[in-house]
Design a binder for these strands. Sequence first.
DNA 1: GGCGCTCTTTAAAACTTTTTAATTTCACTT
DNA 2: AAGTGAAATTAAAAAGTTTTAAAGAGCGCC
Lengths: 338, 338
Amino acid sequence: MVQKVKLSTIAYSLGLSTATVSLALRDSPLVADATRERIKEQARALGYIYNRRAASLRTSRSGIIGVVVHDIMNPFYAEILRAIESELDRNRQTFILSNHYDSVEKQRNFIETLLQLGGDGVIMSPAIGTPKDDILLAEDNNMPAILIARTVDDLDVPIFRGDDAYGIALATNHLIGLGHRVIAMVGGTDQTSTGRHRYEGYVAALEKANIKVDSNLRIPGPRTKQAGFEAAVNFLSLPQKPTAAVCWNDLVAIGLMNGIARAGLVPGKDVSVTGYDDLEEASIATPSLTTVWNGQSEVGRMAARALLDKLNGSSEADGLHLIRPEMRIRQSTTPLKP
Amino acid sequence: MVQKVKLSTIAYSLGLSTATVSLALRDSPLVADATRERIKEQARALGYIYNRRAASLRTSRSGIIGVVVHDIMNPFYAEILRAIESELDRNRQTFILSNHYDSVEKQRNFIETLLQLGGDGVIMSPAIGTPKDDILLAEDNNMPAILIARTVDDLDVPIFRGDDAYGIALATNHLIGLGHRVIAMVGGTDQTSTGRHRYEGYVAALEKANIKVDSNLRIPGPRTKQAGFEAAVNFLSLPQKPTAAVCWNDLVAIGLMNGIARAGLVPGKDVSVTGYDDLEEASIATPSLTTVWNGQSEVGRMAARALLDKLNGSSEADGLHLIRPEMRIRQSTTPLKP
DNA sequence: GGCGCTCTTTAAAACTTTTTAATTTCACTT
DNA sequence: AAGTGAAATTAAAAAGTTTTAAAGAGCGCC
């Protein structure tokens, strides 16, 4: 590298002022077409690189948007992120990604870093136990926040998530319709709003069908394939002998099916299993997984849209927006054997 | 938000100059302990937020590091990223992530954005067909680049990757040792350096065992579970009737096993299958997957380390660094049935 | 030739922080 | 009381861009 090329380099080389160059590069109608072309040409020739930090110091818009979720490697979030990415890309915003792994502290660090960088806004799936104040920290410093997938109480910000209670009820009803009566619920925790909503949906569906709810049939745990795999042991040794499982998500369901297979039973035949999310993977699992589409792509797209709208000062989308899940019936669920 | 709190706000409120405040917050020994404490206390009380863009304008270190890979949602990269993240976190660097999906253009855009933001460095797994110039664009603008997993020819930058030829030979030898003679290679492409190295390793192992190489046994394709699943049809209809498959990676292998199972055969018994990478998932697949550990965590950690070292001006790690893969034998490979 | 008009370009301030040389303060010494 | 030296603080410049009011140029018209 010889020497940094800046506005003044271009200006000097053409005998113009930096003001003109700045305006030209920003496509301002104030500069004459011919001048603009000369300037752009020269900028290219010199290898000029726009210095966003200097610009944002003046304009206070950085073009950076933060996204923080539990774990970007989790395919559920991955699908949401893909949708966010494509929406933000289209609007020439850079996005900074981070995991919080449900650490409130890591999440707060991220918000602070983002503020330091002058982030324009943040999309987050809040960590378990996120205090209201952490969201307000962002909002109070002029960095609007959008929540996805999970809720934080008493906040007046836009929230986008699937209708969990409704979705889990879909799955539970499907199993009840196949004749199952002893249905376990595997994976997840009650510490998140999502967890509570899903358990409510499960309970409501059972009660509506006059099936007694047995809390022993609830096997909580992490939301990973590994956890589903390990839960198989508990599941198979339950005294009530469940014939079906409603799983927290597809990962847990696939893990559970693997665990069941390892124990010598045939998932889909001996035990019916439902997933949740409808990941790409669900349809190629063996047996292919009956599951509930949870609208990941919609959640991502709408959240990004809402943030961009907010940044452009247009109408607000504050409050809860529920995406309605849909049933996907495949081979992992079959009628109860007589 | 009332009014932005800046250094001068703090300075004025304490009757000091901004210089003192700046020095105090940066823990300079130039300011008296008592003063430093007063300043820090006041900064906290006023809710001061450090403005990194203004600072980096002056210092030309932004604390931002870019990472761009084919697809962050791919578990192979995900494991590398996790290692990079933890190394960078420890050094208080923010990292910006992006996918290039093998689009050279998207990758170049990312590099440009990073330059605009004043990125300190970039770690990348270059897109297929990346021209040397795109890497030099970064380097020439004072933003060192580190390559991972893939190579770009004729470049004098640090490169960290697994020894693919060696690793695939491990897997192939393992199958040969079990008595297999007709061994297909499934998934991947020859357009990447990785692809060529792996094919070489496969060919070399066969030749060393005096097995004739049959190019029909090479079934190229995307590196996804879906692709492995779909490849099963081709695999099973090959006239040479392969008894084993060396797969590009664990995802392809698991997909292939699912496809084989769907066709009514038993993977691990009727057909032996090896993966590559040793993802978390490999050990809980059914049957559990024999695979080759590819040192993802090492690659990530070492790449991050190398970049940080380079930023601190210390010794250079230019050139190729190979991580030596290791065999992980599980249940998806069994001796050839007589 | 002077006036008014439009179209372009520019000067200068602003954004917030860091850094270096210079200044001030203060406790000691002689 | 003056001088010394160390310690603490500050003034001022610098980083690269955007923005706005103002200046300048060119032209037609009376």
